[in-house]
Design a protein around this nucleic acid. Sequence first.
DNA 1: TACTAATTGAAAACCGTTTTCACTAAGGTT
DNA 2: AACCTTAGTGAAAACGGTTTTCAATTAGTA
Lengths: 144, 144
Amino acid sequence: MWLHQLRQNGYRLTPARKAVVQTVAASPRAITPLEVYDSARSRHRPLGLVSVYRTLEMLEDLGLIQRVHHPEGCQAFVSTSEGHKHLLICQECGKAAFFEGDRLQPLIRSISKSTGYLIGEHWLQLFGLCKDCQTRVHKRGHPA
Amino acid sequence: MWLHQLRQNGYRLTPARKAVVQTVAASPRAITPLEVYDSARSRHRPLGLVSVYRTLEMLEDLGLIQRVHHPEGCQAFVSTSEGHKHLLICQECGKAAFFEGDRLQPLIRSISKSTGYLIGEHWLQLFGLCKDCQTRVHKRGHPA
DNA sequence: TACTAATTGAAAACCGTTTTCACTAAGGTT
DNA sequence: AACCTTAGTGAAAACGGTTTTCAATTAGTA
């Protein structure tokens, strides 16, 4: 569990941290520092926004959460699903799913060959509608 | 040419705009608003940072430039290469190359199937070393 | 040449993030 | 259980990039 993992890395287990960690871990979608703050304060009222930033940074360093890049902003985080690196985000509700990117290798190799670049990292992120939102959208009629 | 295109979209052709547009168009790498400002001021000294932001927004709306997402920040822009949507960025010098992402379709279809998501957009960005920087790095000996 | 609405640059406002700092308390030690 | 050390806390101030405001300017048209 995350709280365990923090202790093992020499971090103290404070109410502020617990509140932030539990909030982020419980969110199925990417959330911003301010959202974390609002939500985590119900677990630990005196929480300061500063502690949210510090804890998020810490969790990112430990690889437990990752930053999500959106067209509208890049300050949101999701909990990282072990071994799965790529994100699929619902454009309606924000719910995040993960998938393996192994199948990218052939594409990457061919791009490397044609451009001459030595490719190190890759980022792939997909956007769409999750199952729930597909049916929800149907019921309301199709939006623009 | 870009300046033409601006006129055709009802924008006036001012020295400030020309300076910004020419600067961005001439850059082989993604540049931040501040970098644009510094560089464009050599073309039009009295340029204000505000005009840089406004012009960048305008160019983005017209689809002439696109925002580049980096682990370290997401405020840089590159000129969009016609038809090519995906970016390959040199981690040494920042030079950008483009490539087609068509070959992603099979991967996307299979992910769509396994997750149930209806996938709309995709973002793929690669990071690596361009040819020049590969040889440059060799000459200096390998860095960490 | 005159007109007018778009555009400009400076300054102020804004807002999310980071730093500072004196205080608190987690967790090991006794 | 009481103590001690130092990591961690929250409030407030500082910061820095972006946006807004506004009076002055000017591009493009009549």
